[in-house]
C-alpha cells in the first residue's frame, strides 16, 4: 500500500488536515502526542464535528488548531481564551476547545485565563506545558522551574513558577487535571471528561521539548524525558492542588478538581429568559 493511502487508513485520519501533514513540531515533541490524545478523545466520544471549534494562541503548540479538521482559529499571542469566550457565548451549541502553550495561556494571556475561569465560561483549555517558550527559541516563561537554563536565564532561572493546577482551581475552574505525555490513556480520558462537562476546564499536559528546553537543561533524549516522567509521576486523584507543585523528583498527576457550578452561559441564558418573560408580561 502506498504511504499516502496508508495515512488515510490511520484510525484518526479523518480528524487531521492531511494536506498539512507532517506538522512543524520537532522529533519527540510532546505536542504531537497531545494532538493524538485529543483526537482519540474526540473519536471515542463520537462528537458531532460540525459543533467543535478549536482555538489556539501563538507558539509551537498554537499550530495545533490548523491541523485539526474542524472549524478552527489561530488567534494572536495570548488571546485564544477571550476569542473562545466570544465564540461560546455567541453560539452556545458549539463545543469550544482552546489548545495552547504555557507562555501563551499564563504569561501574556494569564489575565484572560483567570477571568474566564472565574466566570466559568464553558470552554475547555488544554495546555501544553513544556516549561518554556519553544517557538521563539527557548526563553523562560511562567512555568519554568527555578534554576532552569533557558536562553534568557543564562545564569539560571530566578523566578518562581506558577503551579497551573492550583491557579486554575483557585480561579474557579470546575475541572482540573494534569498528566504528562506519557500517560496518554488517562490524558485522553481527562480530555473526554472535560469535553463532556459544563464549565471551565483545564487539562495541563506536561510535555517534552527535546530540541530546546530539554537540551538546554541536559535532560537527555525525548525517550529519556518520557522515562523520567514515568519515574517521577505520582497519580493522586483529588489531591490538594495547592500542594501539587511540579518538582524535579515529583510530578503529581491526576484529577484535582471535579465540581459542579452553573456556567456563565447558563446564567446568561437564564437572565435573558427572565428579561424576555418580563417583557412579554408588559404587553
Amino acid at each position: 500500500m502506498k504511504e499516502a493511502d496508508l495515512m488515510l487508513k490511520h484510525p484518526l485520519a479523518k480528524y487531521l488536515r492531511q494536506e498539512r501533514m507532517p506538522h512543524i513540531w520537532c522529533e519527540g515533541c510532546g505536542n504531537g502526542i497531545l494532538l493524538n490524545s485529543f483526537l482519540e478523545g474526540l473519536d471515542e466520544l463520537k462528537q458531532n464535528l460540525d459543533r467543535i471549534v478549536v482555538v489556539s494562541g501563538i507558539g509551537c503548540i498554537g499550530r495545533a488548531a490548523g491541523y485539526i479538521n474542524v472549524d478552527s482559529f489561530h488567534t494572536t499571542h495570548g488571546r485564544a481564551i477571550p476569542f473562545a469566550t466570544g465564540v461560546k457565548l455567541a453560539n452556545p451549541n458549539l463545543k469550544v476547545v482552546v489548545i495552547s502553550g504555557d507562555g501563551d495561556l499564563f504569561a501574556i494571556g494569564g489575565n484572560h485565563f483567570i477571568h474566564a475561569a472565574r466566570r466559568n465560561v464553558d470552554i475547555k483549555v488544554i495546555c501544553a506545558n513544556n516549561f518554556n517558550y519553544g517557538m521563539t527559541g527557548g526563553q523562560y516563561g511562567p512555568t519554568t522551574p527555578l534554576g532552569s537554563w533557558t536562553t534568557t536565564t543564562p545564569y539560571g532561572n530566578i523566578e518562581h513558577p506558577f503551579n497551573l493546577v492550583h491557579l486554575a482551581a483557585a480561579s474557579g475552574a470546575v475541572y482540573v487535571a494534569r498528566w504528562t505525555t506519557l500517560q496518554v490513556r488517562r490524558l485522553k480520558n481527562s480530555i473526554k471528561k472535560a469535553l463532556q462537562k459544563e464549565g471551565f476546564s483545564l487539562v495541563e499536559v506536561i510535555s517534552p521539548c527535546p530540541e530546546i528546553f530539554d537540551r538546554y537543561n541536559k535532560l537527555g533524549t525525548a525517550v529519556d524525558v518520557m522515562k523520567w516522567f514515568k519515574l517521577i509521576s505520582q497519580v493522586k486523584h483529588g489531591y490538594d492542588p495547592a500542594k501539587a507543585e511540579v518538582a524535579k523528583n515529583k510530578i503529581i498527576v491526576g484529577e484535582f478538581v471535579d465540581i459542579e457550578k452553573p456556567s456563565y452561559g447558563r446564567l446568561l441564558r437564564e437572565m435573558t429568559a427572565n428579561v424576555q418573560d418580563k417583557l412579554k408580561g408588559e404587553k
Binding site: 495515512m7 487508513k9 490511520h10 484510525p11 484518526l12 485520519a13 487531521l16 501533514m21 507532517p22 506538522h23 513540531w25 519527540g28 515533541c29 510532546g30 505536542n31 504531537g32 502526542i33 494532538l35 493524538n36 490524545s37 482519540e40 505525555t181 506519557l182 496518554v184 490513556r185 485522553k188
Partner: peptide
Amino acid sequence: TAICPEFAIF
C-alpha cells in the same frame, strides 16, 4: 498508536 506524535504508526 496513541503515543506516536506523528501519526506514523497504528
